[in-house]
Amino acid sequence: MREEPTTPALEGADLSIGYGEKIIASGLSIRIYPGDVASLLGPNGVGKSTLIKTLTGELEAVEGIVYVFGKDVESYSRKELSRLLAIVTTDSVLAGGLTVEELVGLGRQPHTGFFGRMGDDDRKATEEAMRRVGIIHKREAYVAELSDGERQKAMIAKALAQETAIIVLDEPFSYLDVAARIEILSLLKEIAAGGKAILFSSHDVSQALRMASKAILFTPSGELISGTPARLIAERRLPLLFPRRNVVFSEEAKDFIAAETGSELSSVKACNVNECPVQPHTPDR
């Protein structure tokens, strides 16, 4: 598919993640390369958000090291890191009284001086980010006036304006309908094609498998399994995400469905973890 660059943009090596004494999962390794649109999939409570926060340097790894372009994330200053890695979350924000342009312009903060004065470069980067995301027609609008999808686009534009090589999105689709999800995923693919490394966590298995270039499964047993969606499906890894009798993975629908509906779709191979033999997995890089 694509040539493999030698250094991952973002790498977690043998991580134990958790808060202080409480370890949620250990032995986790993950690599995101420039050009990747990687989706982190897993059931609730498995530690997706904790892993994301550990990879972005928001949370210290209990054990193991996070590398950003081959260097320990701890060795970067906050300022340096803010120019390499941008996050997008769905945290509620009090930014309703900013215009879209002001919000996207906040992405320039790591690049501007003490008073945040925007130079020509900063204005150009802000405008370019709004244009790429397709929100430029709303530049004068207040953030409060945006739909959920538009607001998420504006936050992604803010991340683009930050001009980082890595963008990490924590559950970016939480409040979005399917159309908005697809639109944003296409946008992320386009952005990655320009050489950025993108990692997002999601509950939307089917869209992630269709559109991401790489899927990382975080199983309830605390393992990370990564590969291209096609390979993970062929190797029947997906059922490991929800090891339950009444939830099966349909390869045709590329989604989890209730076990009893599986038989209604004649040609569908739908199975759960107990029924389908797992194929041998070739570890991903």
Binding site: T56, S82, L85, L94, A95, L98, L103, L106, G107, P110
Partner: peptide, 13 residues
């Protein structure tokens, strides 16, 4: 930056 919440603010350095 804090208008966006603590996670964004710390991500902005």
């Amino acid at each position: 930056a804090l208008l966006l919440g603590e996670r964004y603010a710390s991500n902005m350095g």
